[in-house]
Simulated assay, not measured.
Amino acid sequence: MPPAPLAVHVDPLPYQARLQPRLRAQIDLVVVHCTELPDLATARVYGERILYPESQTGNSGHYYIDRDGGVQRWVDTDRVAHHVRGHNPRSIGIELVNRGRWPRWLDADHQAMAEPYPDAQIAALLALLRQLRQDLPSLRFIAGHEDLDREDVPASDDPGQRVRRKRDPGPWFPWDTVLAQVALQRLPGPGS
């Protein structure tokens, strides 16, 4: 008997209709992120911010998974969300609620990511990935944000030091579990 469909709460961002449309057939990649924020409500505030005046859109993923396993879709898959430089037109962004390095993302002395991902959150991610595989036959690859955005930037607390701009989903993300249970190939990052 097939598993029950994943319950996804649809709550489109106010600017969703202004995001570039795309064909579902061009989607071959899922990028896993962590919000690096304290909670889902704060992530929503950040997601609604207009950062690109020409299009009146901002940065966001398509799906957000809270610590308790609740799944929300903020951007439809047939729209290009702004979640990872250079890969947006071909990818789905999935954000896992996790503090990451919050609130001092780029401080040289605050680069450790100490919050593990709860089992309920990973179970929901696996269910979502399986559903996306079913719905998007062209989906073949998965990557972490840190795999694709490897830029080093000056540390905010010591510009003489450099830190990784993006480190998510980070060292607590269970790559072995995810790759063993979902038929997606991990996409190597630039220079790998």
Rank of each mutant, 00 (worst) to 15 (best):
C34Y: 09
H82T: 03
S138P: 09
A25V: 08
H83M: 07
G189L: 14
Q20V: 05
R22N: 06
Q185I: 15
A112R: 15
I142N: 11
P174N: 06
R90Y: 02
G191D: 14
D109A: 11
A123R: 13
P116A: 09
T42Q: 08
P188I: 12
Y15D: 07
P12C: 04
R22I: 08
S156R: 06
G69W: 12
P188K: 14
L37W: 02
Q121P: 08
A180Y: 03
P169E: 11
I122N: 00
R90L: 10
D168L: 05
P171L: 15
P118I: 03
D168M: 10
N59Q: 05
A43L: 11
I142H: 13
Q121G: 08
H62Y: 04
C34A: 13
P174M: 09
C34R: 13
A123F: 05
F173W: 14
V71G: 05
V84G: 01
R140I: 08
T57D: 03
L179T: 07
G47N: 13
H110G: 02
Q121C: 08
G70T: 12
V80G: 01
P38Y: 02
P5D: 11
Q56A: 13
D158M: 03
I50C: 04
H82Y: 04
P190R: 09
A7W: 07
R130F: 09
Q121W: 05
V84C: 13
S192L: 12
R164A: 14
P3K: 14
L129K: 14
L6H: 10
M113R: 12
G191A: 15
L136P: 10
A120E: 12
R133C: 15
L19R: 01
V80A: 00
R67V: 09
D149L: 06
V45S: 01
E146D: 13
D157C: 02
